[in-house]
């Protein structure tokens, strides 16, 4: 039974670690994931990727927190895709 409580907005963040930061790349990603976990909205979506899902306000606020944590940990970049789930057209749209 998919999508009962479809989140309003989701944000997919991919952390690009730096080879030259103080922390090793793995740790930079871990820091970002831990920060994401604390927002209560996160799930993993790949080795460097996490998704935040929830209401628009909470997702946008959480996104800033995770980006900040990633940059503080030395990440070179954070790739970001924000999607309004209502528009995503998944699960059965069209034939």
């Amino acid at each position: 039974m998919p999508g009962y409580e479809r989140a309003e907005v989701s944000a997919e963040l991919t952390v690009v670690p730096s080879e030259h930061a103080g922390k090793p790349p793995r740790e930079q990603i871990e820091t970002a994931k831990t920060a994401a976990g604390e927002t209560g909205l996160a799930r993993e979506a790949g080795p460097e990727t996490l998704v935040l899902a929830g209401s628009r306000r909470e997702v946008l606020e959480a996104t800033v927190e995770v980006i900040e944590a990633s940059l503080d940990a030395g990440a070179r970049a954070v790739e970001l895709k924000v999607e309004a789930e209502g528009e995503s057209g998944r699960f059965g749209g069209g034939g």
């Binding site: 999508g3 409580e5 799930r43 979506a45 790949g46 080795p47």
Partner: peptide, 25 residues
């Protein structure tokens, strides 16, 4: 392996939280 999954590496009907192929956990 998971490296060969070109699109979303997770799936799930309500919450895509399940790896197509596990990567580290």
């Amino acid at each position: 392996t998971h490296e060969d999954v070109p699109g979303r590496k997770v799936y799930g009907m309500e919450i895509p939280d399940q790896p197509v192929l596990a990567w580290e956990r």
